[in-house]
Design a protein around this nucleic acid. Structure first.
Length: 588
RNA sequence: GGCGGCGUAGCUCAGUUGGUUAGAGCAGCGGAAUCAUAAUCCGCGUGUCCGGGGUUCAAGUCCCUGCGCCGCCA
């Protein structure tokens, strides 16, 4: 096995506005946590970071709706999201905030570097200003009648009825979505644009460095094989090459809430009162978050994770995100990093996910359709969700959540296969030998076969986890659980006990050791249940089973244990039906 | 409208660079066992690989096209 490595892991940072649904969870934070937990268990050094993404108009509006100053609203929502993250046992080394002073300084620093590199240009443009609201309005916050189809609630960027793309000035009788005011006027304003187009070649070179040629030429185009997930690379190249190609992007806005536009520590003439646009400062928070981690006293040196001139060149950096975030992570953020001309760590591997659908449709925040993270925790322990979501992660295509599938999977995998295994072996031992690991007997062919089988399966499990093949890893883990039941079924200690108690003792001892073995292997998926099993087995030996035979002797004869409470109770049909109606939301 | 993705057993999904009789889990059917959360284990899978063309000695796997579903469009 490879020597200990250092892994930097970030999850896409969730927007501050509201509580996320299960689709958001499984698209970034949860698989990131799985990977982080696994690598730590394998004794690698891990820095796992996440944060809340707090700037932008939606946060301001949500705060206004809640009747609170936006800073206060964000602070409260950050705590809410942090609490929910703890509820799902997400093991962030730090859960930061994009509104942190560290991110302010760093964002302004990057802007300065990009300006020095000639990668920022100033653009004077005209935008809709709402006199009543006292602010410029983003296109989607202007509504009016569509000039094309007459739909009365067309948005300034697009008509939801006829899907025609619009400019706010196209709308008939435009009004502010915020206040309803029709007192709108076109005002001149100046903004900064990041010259992404100038970096196209550099970005393409970097992205192609994550692929390898197959040698095949098809239709005059050389075929490539991706080392990143196909989803990641195809989205990146599409944005880079298709249509008009990579466009320059505005990185500032006329808002109050955000990071003030500055040229490093200095003022930026003409940009007073403006802030950086949220997409610019949000990914920089990945770096600032490491600074927050140090400033919070949890670490001592953030630069060895982020500066390749200060030790980060041997760090492997993995990002997790939903597919909608891929362009920002493959193009925009790398443009910021590369454009700075400084030796910042670039991402090595981007794991992206498709969407999770809910019962034949989309999860919908606005319609309250689907299960949200707080609701999920209110009805079942987090491990139930973690297991189902990870074992059904939308890796190759969009995935489907149905209550029937959820109930069946969780009951079968967790309650019947794993939970019942623990139950049957501990209770049998208690009734025949007491609550202590029994002594006597020696391995026979069955035990040797089991060890050989498990050795192969653990290797397969590790290979899938190393490759971040989440569903396949879950399937391997489940097969490892099944192997325990197969063994018990054929060894049948309840039968051997009648004729040869020593053999039965050996079989039971092995069975009890399998519980610890499973707890260690399963902890990345179901950390709380694993901790419960370890407590029941009265051990804190979390060492990874590099040697399966040795690992299955960790609990020696005479070692005391408790028969655990039901590890996973089953979901009843009544509960399923109840939840099904409760979370159906308002159908369109 | 443009672009992208998807369409494989009742359900959820695998199917690597095209190559022998298309796979897994669940559900279903049959059997074994009775330690256990009525929990386990074993056996049983012909399904138009959405339809239609094409390339090839060979296509679920490549190309074209039709249909259906979904997403994105700064």
């Amino acid at each position: 096995m490879a020597a200990m490595a250092r892994h930097l892991i970030t999850s896409a940072i969730p927007y501050i506005n509201g509580i996320k649904h299960l689709g958001n969870l499984v698209g970034s934070q949860l698989p990131a946590d799985l990977y982080a937990r696994y690598l730590r268990a394998r004794s690698h050094e891990v820095l796992f970071l996440c944060a809340t993404d707090e700037h932008g108009t939606p946060a301001e509006l949500a705060a206004a709706k809640a009747g609170k100053p936006v800073a206060e609203y964000c602070a409260e929502m950050h705590d809410v999201q942090a609490g929910i993250a703890r509820g799902f046992a997400l093991s962030f080394d730090h859960f930061g905030r994009s509104s942190s002073p560290q991110n302010h300084r760093l964002t302004q620093h990057f802007a300065h570097r990009l300006k020095e590199a000639g990668l920022i240009r100033e653009v004077t443009e005209h935008q809709m200003y709402s006199v009543a609201d006292g602010r410029f309005l983003p296109d989607r916050y202007i509504e009016g009648t569509c000039p094309n189809c007459g739909f009365e609630s067309a948005r300034g960027d697009q008509c939801d009825n006829c899907t025609k793309q619009l400019d706010p000035t196209d709308l008939i009788n435009p009004r502010s979505v915020i206040s309803g005011s029709t007192e709108l006027e076109l005002r001149e304003t100046k903004h900064l644009y990041l010259r992404q187009s100038a970096m196209r070649g550099q970005l393409e070179q970097w992205i192609l460095s994550k692929t390898e040629p197959t040698g095949e030429i098809r239709n005059g185009v050389e075929m490539i094989r991706t080392t990143w997930p196909i989803l990641t690379t195809s989205i990146a190249l599409k944005w880079l090459r298709d249509g008009e190609g990579l466009q320059d992007r505005g990185i500032t806005r006329d808002l109050d809430w955000g990071i003030p536009v500055k040229d490093g520590d200095a003022d930026w003439p003409g940009m007073e009162g403006k802030v950086f646009y949220v997409w610019f400062d949000a990914p920089i928070e990945y770096i600032a978050c490491a600074q927050e981690w140090v400033d919070a006293g949890k670490g001592t040196d953030w630069e060895r994770w982020w500066r390749t001139d200060k030790g980060a060149d041997d760090v492997r950096y993995t990002q997790f995100m939903g597919k909608d975030n891929v362009p920002f992570h493959t193009l925009s953020f790398p443009a910021t990093i590369l454009g700075s001309g400084e030796p910042w760590k670039l991402v090595d591997y981007i794991k992206s996910f498709n969407y999770l659908n809910y019962d034949g449709g989309q999860f919908s925040t606005s319609r309250g359709r689907g299960v949200f993270m707080d609701q999920a925790l209110a009805i079942l322990p987090s491990d139930y969700w973690r297991w189902w979501l990870l074992s059904h992660a939308p890796e190759t295509s969009d995935a489907e959540f149905t209550w029937e599938n959820f109930q069946a999977s969780v009951n079968k995998d967790l309650a019947d296969v794993l939970g019942n295994f623990v139950s049957r072996i501990t209770k049998f031992c208690r009734s025949k030998f007491g609550e202590v690991v029994p002594e006597g007997g020696a391995y026979g062919d069955q035990e040797q076969a089991l060890i050989a089988d498990l050795t192969a399966r653990v290797a397969a499990y590790q290979a899938q986890m190393d490759a971040i093949e989440v569903r396949k890893a879950a399937a391997e883990l489940r097969a490892i659980w099944v192997a325990g039941n197969e063994y018990l079924q054929s060894a049948a200690p309840w039968t051997t006990f009648k004729t040869d108690p020593a053999v039965a003792a050996m079989q039971v001892r092995l069975g009890l050791n399998l519980i610890r073995f499973y707890a260690v292997l399963s902890a990345a998926f179901i950390p709380d249940a694993s901790a419960g099993l370890m407590a029941a087995m009265q051990t804190d030996d979390w060492s990874w089973p590099d040697d399966v035979a040795g690992a299955l002797q960790a609990l020696p004869p005479g070692h005391a244990f408790n028969v655990p409470e039901v590890t996973f109770r089953k979901i009843t049909d009544e509960e399923r039906a109840d939840w099904q109606t409760r979370f159906a939301g308002i159908r369109a």
